[in-house]
Design a protein around this nucleic acid. Structure first.
Length: 414
RNA sequence: GGAGAGUUGGCUGAGUGGUCGAAAGCGCCUCCCUGCUAAGGAGGUAUACGGGCAACUGUAUCGAGGGUUCGAAUCCCUCACUCUCCGCCA
């Protein structure tokens, strides 16, 4: 949520910046709602103040046994006005909130402008992508079983068997250990979140179609960013508690509505996948520095797995709803002869902390923290990358050195 | 799932219809006293939002939501959570 004072002060500027990310901000509607909010709030509070004083007087009169009919009438009429006024106020406040919850975060000034991914900017590259087009992961091994998954649940699910299931588990354990090395505290979390949590991090109310909803107030999480960030919801931290660095492995669930026909083959786009997430809660002055660190924490894993990848800075039009600045890490997928997103590291500035009311106290003043998140990494996609980039073309997958402590073997027969 | 008890400020804990944003203690902060240590004294110490250049001031908040009342921390209803006992269970 954007600071309303900021909008009031520079409505034009805000509107321009939001245009960069293809959001058209209705300045007039906002100004109108905000003006009305102010009017009705002041009026309501005045009436409440009046009622409070008169009620006190009434009490005194009663005590002294004096006549109270005139006062009683006066109070009654104030109550009627107050009722109308506060109803109106509630109505406007919820419209205003609805309006504001729909507005995406402001792109940071450093973000390249552009309408779509075509304007994303490659920052750096690491490793040597394979020259020849390779087999895809489904062709390489039958231990990824989409047919069974289809039988059990439907499309966009996978059953992993034997060594491949173990390989994914090894990847997750490796990633968690790396996160711990980088100072992140490991969490085990509910994989169901409620409406409030999902609203705080920005998935709701706008993107409910992307979520699996279980019941009225239960949703499967689309990422561990949701529970991890919400751990601090409604809290005021001490300055010395910052930064907080958290990590968790969870399953992630996405409806993938609107992606029919996209990446239908293999593990690339699933309804359920495993991911290790990094989250940082930090001082506003440190968040852009923290984004560089968090991104490099995620990169370390790709480096140690010897996977070729590139780092891309998203342009304004390609930013996610809550992000002010994002780096995508894209890993080389030989069968597709292209780089595919395997991590997305974002600085959400105070967008989520305003929604979640996560603050810290500095010099006696409470301020909003900045929140950051990034995958380190998406395990399903990492699995594909490891399989395809290490297939020896003869029936074995060579396990990267860094993983061998976990797999207890140096290659897998497929 | 059944029965009972509870939820008040950073903490402990008073408060059963008005003078209560809330006693007292602890903690914390400022100042005073004191040549160390220890002790003592005075004052201050929630959050959000609104109005005001500011000093300041208004409103709301005693688990959450609704209700009764001129007036609710206090009475009524619903819900959540915690604890104890029983049942069941990984």
């Amino acid at each position: 949520m954007i600071d309303t004072n900021l909008i009031k002060a520079n409505s034009k500027d805000i509107s321009e910046r939001l245009k960069l990310r293809n959001y058209s901000f209705d300045e007039d509607l906002f100004a109108n709602l905000e003006a009305q909010r102010k009017k009705y709030q002041t009026e309501t509070e005045d009436l409440q103040a009046k009622r409070n004083t008169l009620s006190k007087e009434y009490g005194l009169l009663k005590k002294e046994g004096k006549d109270d009919t005139a006062l009683s009438k006066n109070i009654e009429s104030i109550k009627i006005d107050l009722d109308t006024c506060s109803n109106k106020l509630n109505e406007i406040q919820s419209s205003l909130k609805e309006f504001l919850l729909d507005v995406p975060n402001l792109p940071d000034d450093s973000v390249p402008s552009g309408v779509d991914e075509g304007s994303n900017k490659k920052i750096r590259e690491h490793g040597e992508p394979a020259i020849l087009k390779g087999k895809d992961h489904l062709e390489i091994t039958s231990m990824i079983d989409t047919e069974s998954a289809n039988l059990l649940a439907g499309s966009r699910f996978a059953v992993l068997r034997g060594e491949i299931a173990k390989l994914q588990r090894a990847l997750i354990a490796f990633m968690l250990d790396k996160a711990a090395e980088h100072g992140y505290t490991e969490y085990y979390l509910p994989m169901i979140a409620n409406t409030e949590s999902l609203t705080a991090t920005g998935q709701l109310p706008k993107f409910s179609d992307d979520l699996f909803q279980l019941t009225d107030d239960y949703f499967l999480i689309p990422t561990a960013e949701v529970p991890l960030t919400n751990l601090y919801r409604d809290q005021i931290l001490n300055l010395n508690q910052l930064p907080q660095k958290l990590t968790a492995h969870t399953s992630c669930f996405r409806s993938e509505a609107g992606s029919y026909g996209k990446d239908t083959k293999g593990l690339i786009r699933q309804h359920q996948f495993e991911k290790v997430e990094l989250v940082q809660i930090c001082h506003p002055d440190k968040s852009f520095e923290a984004l560089e660190n968090l991104t490099s924490d995620a990169e370390t894993i790709l480096k140690e797995l010897n996977l070729p990848y590139q780092v891309v800075e998203l342009c304004s039009g390609d930013l996610g709803f809550s992000a002010a600045k994002t780096y995508d890490l894209e890993v080389w997928i030989p069968s597709q002869e292209t780089f595919r997103e395997i991590s997305s590291c974002s600085n959400c500035t105070e967008f989520q902390s305003r929604r979640a009311k996560i603050r810290f106290k500095e010099d006696g003043v409470s301020k909003y923290v900045h929140t950051l998140n990034g995958s380190a990494l998406a395990a399903g996609r990492a699995l594909i990358a490891v399989i395809e980039n290490n297939y020896d073309q003869k029936g074995a997958i060579n396990i990267p050195q860094a993983l061998q402590d976990y797999t207890k073997c140096s290659s897998i027969k497929v």
